[in-house]
Design a protein around this nucleic acid. Sequence first.
DNA 1: CAAGACAGGATTGTTGACAAGATGTGTCGA
DNA 2: TCGACACATCTTGTCAACAATCCTGTCTTG
Lengths: 224, 224
Amino acid sequence: MTDKLTGAAGRQYVADAIRHALRSGDLVPGQRLVENDLVESYGTTRGAVREALQDLAAEEIVEIIPRRGARVRVVSVEEAVQITECRSALEQLCAAHAAERASDAQRAELGRIGKDMTRAVSDGAWDVYSGLNQRLHELVIEASGQEVARRHLDRLNGRMVRFQFRLAQRPGRPAQSLPQHLAIIDAILNTDPSAAARAAAAHLDDVIQQLQAPTDTAAKKARH
Amino acid sequence: MTDKLTGAAGRQYVADAIRHALRSGDLVPGQRLVENDLVESYGTTRGAVREALQDLAAEEIVEIIPRRGARVRVVSVEEAVQITECRSALEQLCAAHAAERASDAQRAELGRIGKDMTRAVSDGAWDVYSGLNQRLHELVIEASGQEVARRHLDRLNGRMVRFQFRLAQRPGRPAQSLPQHLAIIDAILNTDPSAAARAAAAHLDDVIQQLQAPTDTAAKKARH
DNA sequence: CAAGACAGGATTGTTGACAAGATGTGTCGA
DNA sequence: TCGACACATCTTGTCAACAATCCTGTCTTG
């Protein structure tokens, strides 16, 4: 049905498809990515697949070993912590700038997100909360006008999908992060840059603690 | 004389050569990079050149427009400021960590650099100072153990070469930045993370001010 | 003289085949 | 049973030619 996606279009398509497959768990870390298999799966050419893999390697999502092919890069917990520390540094910057220069429309949306988040938590609507969470971070970056930081944060987040997935599913996690998110929103709405930066830092410090906390299997036993 | 550099080796070689050409001013922003020319200049194959250009595009050093080729990306002053703000955020992180976990050898080298810098300024040895400056930033990052931040800082710095070049040549600049550098060193030697972060922030805030200050000697007509 | 059409050359994009290296398998000997 | 070795297969790397597109200068036409 689809014509063969060739060249630049196919390249983008394959890269996105692999990113998505990682998010949804169809690809697991360490898995080999054989060029011919991808060509058949996605109906493109080898050239497109090859360039897509190069792109993903530049984002450090996959790892290419010469003459041995590409595999999904595994990120250790230590690395996830470092990534989150970098996110923290950059999001503090964005939050501070957002507090200073968010537009009225952006402030309005921030307020709405805060209310919706609160309701989502009390309703136990975890998936809704997760979506709002993502939108919040996105909006803060957008409002900051920091295009350079945005690029780098995208890159950092691209490597964290697996961990974010795990974190979001912990019981009680939304209730714990809600006040932190509200604090960020408040600081921005109050046009208080340093408070916004502090709130962002506090939130991500907490994420780091969660990352370092007992892993999922052990977590169940650690829980009361 | 040299055999034709082929494949992965040529790719690395060409990318490095272009990076170097940018540093030394052989390539100016906006300049076109024609594949065949590069093939002849560096004695490689078109495939290697093409992949090298892809790498540089991923680093946002060059810009590739489909069917029109690659050119050296121009960075506006606003973008340079944003880049430096990101550097600031990440170097604060690194400075703080370095203060906590620098090894004895690293602390010793830091102290040495401080002394050498002071001497270089009083001697008016600008090129020596510039080298020490670079080594200092490198060492702080190294001592922090933040590999992820390191990658991103490398990327950010790769885009700043032109501006760094301009800044370093301003008269009186070394004398101005020396105390800031010494403050960073002192804070790390005193194992004071928050002071180290503050010192790094102060230094980079100053760099930002310099960037925004009187734009270079009369904008030479940016030729297209 | 201005605007547009057009041809020729220059430049990038794509393909397919082949070469080189890596992996897996089966056999043989100890 | 285990390891060493040769062979078959799979996979990636490389290249050269071809195709598609863009740019430039010239010429025509009103």
